[in-house]
Write a protein that binds this DNA or RNA. Structure first.
Length: 576
RNA sequence: CGGUGAUUGGCGCAGCUUGGUAGCGCACUUGGUUUGGGUCCAAGGGGUCGCAGGUUCAAAUCCUGCAUCACCGACCA
């Protein structure tokens, strides 16, 4: 490609509304442009990278035995009503009507459509198992789109769905997809980890996420220092302390703590560490779970710990979704402002996190505005309570796998695989005749990859102060051909044209910068775009029939003789 | 959905307090200059100042409403 005939669209300055480095670089390098909140146009350079990611995904999925299909993005509401998600999903599901006032949705995912397809097309166990995938645009009306294409409303996704008659068969496909994903992210040249995950709104039981490790990641991942254990912090179990709770030594004392509401303020005022404070959170109770008809549940955590909402939501007494009591409700319940509340003397169920339940002689709110209690002890002062794992793990906690301690790192979720079971097949009555001639409901798996998000994640992980540093496998171009003053020198022009022809004929994707620009402009643009290999043609090297090679990532430079360029490039660039 | 802030040429911004009819840098066009790291000089083109209403002789500027965009927020006990 000649840059004079291409749409480069690079920018010197950062657009004001870009926050993270990948978003800034994608705008500056001319990969994307924003149309509206969470909606992006991909410019030619961006499309090139997107297509390369897609190609690798296709190849590995085909190898794993998956078959490509393409489903509509617009889906009729009946299917969603049948699966129950028409009611379950909130505003994230974009709904609209056609000219006949019939309800439709813009597909955020395709379980309903694929399950509908399979129940029509597949009637016998002999046709199973099946694993179908597509690469297609999805729409999720995100509460808050941000970070460019990282969390966009419209985005490109690979989604796959598998159908089985047994858990055993599903497990085999799941394992094959786990391996395919590992192959894909390895080939993409990304530093990634597979982690245990919660299955969230999609449903199902077993699930793994694939994360690209990057400090700007939105998710926290817990790793064991001693084993392969890795889990999303949402999932990582906080083990109960092994030692016994110390016996009470202090008596219950009420102290005045005016204007001290937060854990930190109370800790400072009373000259203690947050570890000695218990904080109490009130959430709505699961209405039908408790015969007492109580509307709220108190959750107690150690002051230095954070509530894990997903864990809390799974507790049988807690309402789903997790809903915090309002300030007014807290006041009515305890008679105190939030900030001065605690578990002593409450007539609602109290659930203490294992670590909070381990405390003795601790501090908590007195349920009287402006007062706290010190020397508080479980059983003696709070006779009735339950314990559970309610908190996020923190760095240094014992690993749930039993080996080593946990370390927390951040990641960007680029893939997620689920064992769905029969959630959708049951609801939509997707079954086949088994060997006994009986109808049997199918077992399903589903597998997603955020194709457009991979582009942003790759940049988060691979950039420097000059711009993007693409991994070879997904670079929009492999080689930047940069002639110095081609418009003044016939021999430079001839050498450049010849090299362009040779390299292109050898199958390389070359961006030939034939613009009438000064060298600095060309270098800056080629580095910003992140082309991994540069060839610079200048007068002084041409005297020796040589050109300069420069590697974008390492900065390594070397001189190549003209007739050796193609062979050298073949040696340096692993063909994908 | 709540809070905060922003909206002036393609991009980044000033002007608004104190109303008088829009300016800077980059980018773009033309000519010259320069040529292995975003040269320099000159001359140009491009803006209903987010939209609608109001106040006023006069509104980018003051007032009201709306829209869009961004950031923060479901960790508060």
């Amino acid at each position: 490609m000649r840059s004079s005939q291409y749409l480069l669209s690079t920018m010197k300055e950062n657009p004001a509304d870009a926050e993270v480095v990948s978003h800034k670089l994608m705008l500056r390098a001319g990969l994307v442009r924003r149309l509206a909140s969470g909606l992006y146009t991909y410019l030619p350079t961006g499309v090139r990278t997107l297509r390369k990611v897609e190609r690798i995904v296709r190849e590995e999925l085909d190898k794993a035995g998956a078959i490509e299909v393409l489903m509509p993005m617009v889906q009729n509401a009946e299917l969603w009503q049948e699966s129950g998600r028409w009611e379950q999903m909130d505003a994230e599901l974009l709904r609209f009507q056609d000219r006949h006032q019939r309800d439709f949705v813009l597909g955020p995912t395709h379980e309903e459509v694929i399950t509908d397809l399979i129940r029509r097309e597949v009637t016998s166990y002999k046709q199973l198992p099946l694993n179908l995938y597509q690469i297609q645009t999805k729409f999720r009306d995100e509460r808050r789109p941000r970070f460019g294409v990282m969390r966009a409303r419209e985005f490109l996704m690979k989604d796959a769905y598998s159908f089985h008659l047994s858990q055993d068969c599903l497990q085999k496909t799941y394992d094959a997809m786990y391996q395919a994903y590992t192959n894909i992210f390895t080939r993409l040249g990304l530093d990634f980890r597979a982690v245990l995950a919660d299955s969230g709104a999609i449903g199902g039981s077993v699930s793994h996420e694939f994360h690209v490790l990057a400090s700007s990641g939105e998710d926290a991942i817990a790793f064991s220092t001693e084993s392969d254990y890795a889990a999303n912090v949402e999932m990582a179990a906080a083990l109960a302390p092994l030692n016994e709770r110390p016996a009470p030594t202090h008596s219950l004392t009420k102290v005045s703590t005016p204007n001290a509401g937060s854990v930190d303020e109370v800790a400072t005022l009373l000259a203690v560490t947050p570890v000695q404070i218990a904080k109490t959170l009130f959430v709505h109770a699961q209405q039908d779970a408790d015969a007492t008809g109580t509307a709220f549940v108190a959750l107690v955590l150690r002051g230095d710990h954070q509530l894990n909402e997903i864990k809390a939501e799974k507790h049988p007494l807690v309402a789903q979704p997790l809903t915090f009591a309002s300030e007014a409700e807290v006041l009515q319940l305890t008679g105190a402002q939030p900030g001065s509340v605690g578990p002593v003397g409450l007539d609602i169920p109290v659930i203490a996190d294992h670590s909070a339940a381990q405390l003795a002689d601790f501090i908590c709110g007195a349920n009287e505005t402006g007062f706290h209690l010190t020397g508080v002890n479980w059983l003696r002062d709070i006779p009735d309570f339950d314990t559970a794992d309610l908190r996020n793990v923190v760095s240094g906690d014992a690993s749930p796998c039993g080996k080593g301690s946990l370390e927390i790192r951040r990641g960007i979720e680029v893939g997620h695989i689920f064992q769905l079971g029969d959630k959708y097949s049951q609801a939509m009555k997707a079954g086949v005749l088994n060997e006994d001639g009986k109808n049997q409901i199918l077992t399903m798996g589903c597998y997603g990859i955020g194709v457009s998000r991979i582009m942003a994640a790759a940049i988060e992980q691979n950039h420097d102060e000059h711009g993007i540093i693409w991994p070879d496998a997904i670079a929009p171009f492999q080689i930047a051909l940069i002639p110095m003053n081609m418009h003044k020198s016939v021999r430079i022009q001839q050498a450049a044209e010849q090299l362009y022809e040779q390299l292109t004929a050898a199958g390389f994707e070359v961006l030939f910068d034939d613009r009438k620009e000064r060298p600095g402009v060309m270098f800056a643009d080629m580095e910003l775009i992140g082309i991994p290999h540069q060839i610079v043609i200048g007068e002084r090297n041409l005297d020796q029939q040589q050109v300069e090679y420069k590697h974008r990532r390492t900065g390594e430079k070397s001189l190549l003789t003209l007739d050796a360029v193609v062979a050298e490039m073949q040696a340096k660039i692993q063909t994908i």
